[in-house]
Write a protein that binds this DNA or RNA. Structure first.
Lengths: 281, 281
DNA sequence: GGCAATATGAAATAATAATTCCAATCCATA
DNA sequence: TATGGATTGGAATTATTATTTCATATTGCC
């Protein structure tokens, strides 16, 4: 009796694709419709779906039965479950994946974990980001002669991406690197007409904090990306963003920070373009 | 007659929260349940929801009516619409956001765009990543004496993150940087007992390609992350991953690449730990 | 504490939706 | 082209589900 009924959407999908060739015309029609409009199947009634797909309700039921379900209703469950899954709080998924990875569930689980951590962080930041802060930060940076970019260690990749993007947008910028130990000198060049993007997360790299302090004492405005209001960076900053990145296997995601960094960068680019257009006009 | 019925979930949510104080006990109970378990409202029947929330079906309907709906069914629509929205293919959202940003819709739209691009990319890669490739790449890298990390320009941030993570995991690695123009010499040190992670996307940085070629001619195995099978990197690589990153405002996301990079790094770390444990036993 | 207004529970009813059934049609094969 | 089997359409039937109703309980107010 066990006809191996597909219980999850992906299985169902591949079952349908496998059999596609051998299905009768109308059944194939509803099959195609189902894969193209899974949401409609999840929410519609047999009658409404059948109408949209251009078949009779009975065909829809036959389709379900041919797949081994005992009726439309149980087929629909699979489509609903899919929406639930997709939507199930990433937090929960992340927990589950962490447990799985702990148990040594293989490398795919690790990968899934990083994807989930990134997604969680992105969700989080789009909920919590304050538009006013974003505007403020962009205005501040757009006025700067040179934008200094300050970040070490884990945040360093973000700094390099900002520097790359600013360069592509032809915005003068300076990455504060430690290669030659000339940071102090580099920092000394900054004036109140410039601005800084500083990024640091707990445990805050002491060098970043020190440089941020020095530079803020020179009167250079700082836009900070950090992880809590207790962050030492927050106190030096003119504008600061709190970004909570989820972690997995001991490494925090960077996806939210990256998204914010890009928004700042491109935002500055646009603002400058607008400003120069006005000046010309 | 227009009672200003909440038409979208967020409006509904705030309406409920506003009135919370003034609602009768049972109605408040179902109200709280609805906000806590929106998915159940979307999918359940009046009876099943009422049971889960510990009230009568009629209460559920009264709740809906008090909010201005004419019955449970229309209230449910809002909860369903929410799932649809949330789930509406990120691609579509991205399109919409791109159009919005083009039209000069402000900096929030830009930010949302980068978030959407990152999410799309993550979705994409979790669908397309091949487990076998992942295993293969990790085994290959785990055997290496030194892991060389090769990436420029846009991919460079990923390289710095990999280097940072490998360092934290105490895995010997060498970032191939161009600072002193010593890349050629650095590359010359690599032997077949080492391995390379190379990352490059179109337009492929010529230096990356050249270095990859040289190093592969020395017999050093390469794991490549790139964006198509036509990529020149693919031909030098022992294992390669195709990562399709969505772009926004002219900049591609890095989120999928980052997730993959982290999975490789941490995967290698685990594999080594397992191997050394076995050796000891 | 008594009264009216409001809220709640439970079952009856109405509505809506899924499923079944049968006749008509299509299609492959001899 | 005739014939049997599979497929389809459409209406009838059955099932499920939302809604209404009314009796009962609770609450606030004088």
């Amino acid at each position: 009796m066990d006809e191996r009924v597909p219980r999850d959407f992906e299985t169902l999908r591949s079952t349908i694709l496998d059999r596609r060739e051998s299905l009768p015309k109308r059944i194939a029609q509803i099959a195609a419709y189902a894969l193209d409009n899974p949401d409609d199947i999840a929410f519609g009634t047999a009658a409404s779906i059948a109408a949209s797909a251009g078949v009779q309700p009975s065909t829809l039921i036959r389709f379900a039965q041919q797949l081994g379900f005992d009726g439309f209703t149980s087929l629909q469950q699979v489509f609903r479950e899919r929406l639930r899954e997709r939507n199930s709080s990433y937090d929960e998924r992340l927990q589950a994946l962490r447990a799985k990875a702990e148990g040594g569930a293989g490398h795919r689980a690790i990968f899934d974990g990083f994807v989930a951590a990134a997604s969680t962080s992105l969700n989080d930041i789009s909920r919590t980001l304050d538009d006013a802060h974003l505007e403020e930060a962009i205005s501040l940076l757009a006025k700067a002669q040179t934008i200094y970019v300050l970040a070490k260690r884990r945040s360093y990749p973000v700094a390099t991406y900002i520097a790359y993007a600013l360069g592509k947008l032809k915005i003068r910028n300076q990455l504060i690197e430690s290669a030659a130990g000339l940071n102090a000198e580099m920092v000394a060049f900054a004036t109140p007409a410039d601005a800084v993007i500083a990024i640091s997360f707990s445990p805050y790299a002491p060098a970043t904090i020190e440089e941020a302090r020095t530079i803020s004492e020179q009167g250079v405005p700082i836009v900070a990306i950090t992880d809590s209001s207790f962050s030492p960076l927050a106190q030096f900053a003119r504008v600061w963003f709190e970004v909570a990145e989820a972690d997995f296997a001991g490494f925090r995601s960077l996806s939210a920070t990256m998204a914010l960094a890009m928004a700042l960068t491109v935002g500055v680019g646009e603002k400058r373009r607008d400003a120069s257009r006005k000046r010309k006009a």
